[in-house]
């Protein structure tokens, strides 16, 4: 059985990696054309433009893979198929971070501009405040989600997430009234999530390393995550240290989410739907999900982002990528839902 599972897993992994690389290259061949002359440009462009596309497709792949991973971890951790990084308030945390930065931080920019180090740090504007906000929200949810004895409890955790999310939403509305005139588009655009060609290479590298660390960690948890799908007492009897497993899964999910927020802001739906799609196609075994879901999510986000990137001419400007992830992901999700009788 081991040999059979391993060979199946190896085959899926190899096929998945190959497909991901193929889609990566295909995505590089699409882009917007010259406005007014050509709607979409197909084929490989000159170096200067190729570099911009490369940055963006890389960022999409990393952000997608990280979301796909975080989704599996959180759904497994919370035993809840509706969980994703954003149900846990991480997205609203990052938005609050950005808003606080816009309201209070930018006023301080002038004092920072004397220091070149600070200038470089904040050259990417919202990334660092977003990350700080996400980490603070995650930490709060984690503290609130613990029950007596320090063990993370799925139900308490998800409720804490919903509450932190709501409070974050209220703070966003509150801060919105304090934001200077003109800065509000930045926030709105941020709230939809956006992958930029302007992402710095340092950030992409940082996100990539965070994702790889989270991924490597998650791959060691596959079997244990399967057993954690049982009730606490059952999982305990089967040899799982639930408290440390949940702590690891939560920390890895936060790391992966941070990686994705760093390069793409809060993009919804990918982290929710990709684990489901993989469960529908390959079954609920986490050892497989930890490989298939990040790859599928990377492919999905690369394709969705390439679509919005290339079709601005048809939509009077570029669409937010969240529109496509929801519009394509939603019906596919419903199809899977229909095909299988149950998801639990």
């Amino acid at each position: 059985m081991k040999a059979m599972i391993l060979s199946r897993l190896t085959a899926i992994t190899l096929a998945g990696v190959f497909l991901t690389l193929l889609i990566f290259i295909v995505c590089l061949a699409f882009g917007p054309g010259m406005p007014g002359q050509q709607a979409i440009s197909v084929g490989f462009p000159r170096m200067a433009i190729l570099q911009l596309r490369l940055t963006r497709v890389e960022a999409a792949a990393i952000a997608g893979a990280a979301l796909g991973l975080a989704g599996v971890l959180l759904q497994g951790l919370l035993r809840n198929p509706l969980a994703d990084p954003f149900v846990l308030g991480i997205s609203s945390g990052s938005t609050v971070g950005v808003m606080i930065w816009i309201v209070f931080g930018q006023a301080m920019l002038q004092s920072f501009t004397s220091s070149p180090w600070m200038e470089n740090l904040f050259a990417n504007g919202q990334t660092i405040p977003a990350l700080v906000g996400a980490v603070v929200a995650t930490w709060l949810v984690f503290l609130l989600g613990r029950r007596r004895g320090g063990m993370l409890d799925p139900m308490t955790l998800i409720l804490s997430g919903v509450i932190i999310s709501t409070i974050g939403g209220a703070l966003v509305m509150l801060l919105n009234n304090l934001v200077p005139y003109g800065a509000r588009t930045d926030i709105l655009n941020y709230m939809f999530g956006y992958i930029s060609e302007g992402t710095s290479h340092t950030l992409i590298l940082a996100a990539f390393i965070s994702f790889v660390l989270a991924w490597a960690g998650a791959l060691t948890l596959g079997g244990a995550m399967n057993i954690a799908s049982f009730s606490d007492a059952e999982a305990h009897s089967l040899g799982i240290q639930l408290s440390s497993l949940r702590l690891s899964a939560f920390a890895l999910a936060a790391l992966a989410t941070a990686a994705s927020i760093t390069v793409a802001g809060p993009i919804g739906f990918v982290g929710l739907i990709c684990p489901h799609a993989c469960r529908g196609i390959f079954g609920p075994d986490h050892r497989q999900l930890f490989i298939t879901s990040p790859l599928l999510a990377a492919i999905f986000l690369m394709l969705a982002d390439t679509f919005v990137r290339s079709t601005g001419a048809y939509f009077n400007g570029e669409l937010p990528v969240g529109v496509i992830t929801a519009l394509c992901g939603g019906p596919f999700f419903l199809y899977l839902l229909k095909r299988r009788r149950t998801w639990m």
Partner: peptide
């Protein structure tokens, strides 16, 4: 030690 609960629970479709 092994354990059989009153009502076994599994969260995903294994």
């Amino acid at each position: 030690l092994s354990y059989v609960p009153q009502t076994p629970q599994v969260s995903f479709a294994y």
